[in-house]
């Protein structure tokens, strides 16, 4: 046994790991330790080591500013809307796709619903802004054709969360449906045959076989989403927002970008980013532990 072990403790394996070790040290671990600048009054001229310590001052500044409440609220609103409106869509889509009997038709539908996932945020956001434009957008042309006033969607605070959520649904539903489709194909087909023999109709089969079978997947995905509620799709928000609607569209991550990278207020922005990391970590860890407990319970059923 000992010989077998040393046999595989080949230096070649360590050599293969060199690139990833270097990469992670340089671009992950050093930045992680770099979050300490949140506790310093960082000046690019003095550098990391010589900048003076500043304690929790930047955290205090952030928590007492008007931005704290605003960005936290917007982040949770976008995450919450996503959970409420977007979560069921891929499940329904997967159920629909799964009931298509012709394999080629099913594949064609799936190819189309996956398309938006592969298109860049920039293009999707650009098209959305275009279609919603007050002067040339198709949505407003339609409103005008039935005698309604055009709406300047991208400039009204109230519309932003809905526009963002709709675009996320549009872009990711087909992609997220894949997990549920996999769970659906894992269901034993003899269950349906037996149900049919017993005279169970379609609806009965759905509620008695299909939904209970994919319920563990649904619950797990739901917990994963709760864990990620803070991590809104930041690149997308950044593309869709503009100065006029910052009040409803500024989220924690875009705020960090604006203050830190555009405003060069490095320490303050790092403090805000650290707050987000801790908050997100608490959510992820707690939803993971619930998920694990659930998984164990599910295997007992």
């Amino acid at each position: 046994m000992r010989r077998a072990k040393s046999l595989h403790d080949d230096p070649a394996l360590w050599i293969m790991l060199i690139p990833v070790i270097l990469y992670l040290l340089l671009f992950r671990y050093i930045p992680i330790s770099g979050v300490l600048i949140a506790l310093k009054r960082f000046s690019p001229f003095l550098g990391f080591l010589k900048s003076p310590w500043n304690g929790l001052e930047y955290f205090r500044q952030f928590f007492s500013s008007i931005y704290f409440e605003r960005v936290l609220r917007n982040t949770l609103v976008l995450g919450g809307y996503y959970l409420a409106f977007a979560f069921p869509v891929p499940i329904i889509l997967a159920l629909m796709l799964n009931s298509v009997r012709k394999p080629r038709l099913k594949k064609a539908f799936q190819t189309v619903t996956l398309l938006p996932h592969f298109v860049s945020f920039v293009v999707i956001a650009g098209i959305a802004i275009n279609l919603l434009s007050p002067r040339t957008g198709v949505v407003n042309l339609f409103r005008q054709s039935i005698g309604l006033e055009p709406i300047f969607f991208m400039q009204q605070q109230g519309f932003f969360p809905f526009i963002y959520t709709f675009i996320r649904i549009f872009k990711e539903s087909g992609y997220e449906a894949i997990v549920y489709l996999a769970a659906l194909t894992a269901i034993d087909p003899t269950l349906y045959e037996a149900a049919e023999v017993d005279g169970a109709g379609r609806w009965r089969q759905l509620t008695a076989i299909t939904l209970p079978s994919i319920m563990p997947t649904i619950v797990l995905m739901f917990l994963v989403r709760i864990g990620n509620i803070v991590s809104v799709s930041f690149e997308e928000v950044l593309l869709l927002q503009n100065d006029v609607i910052l009040e409803t569209s500024e989220v924690i991550s875009t705020f960090v970008y604006r203050r830190g990278l555009l405003g060069a207020d490095y320490s303050y922005a790092t403090a805000v980013g650290l707050f987000e990391t801790v908050f997100a970590l608490i959510l992820v860890v707690s939803s993971n532990s619930i998920a694990r407990r659930f998984k164990n319970a599910a295997s007992l059923w």
């Binding site: 960090v256 922005a269 997100a280």
Partner: peptide, 28 residues
């Protein structure tokens, strides 16, 4: 032999959010 520790070394970095990394990564 290094499997466990290296797995940890790699997977632990997934827990830091992109937002938290933004400024430090830029500075690095």
């Amino acid at each position: 032999r290094g499997r466990k520790v290296m797995n940890l070394f790699v997977s632990i970095t997934m827990f830091i959010s992109a937002t938290g990394m933004m400024i430090p990564l830029f500075l690095v």
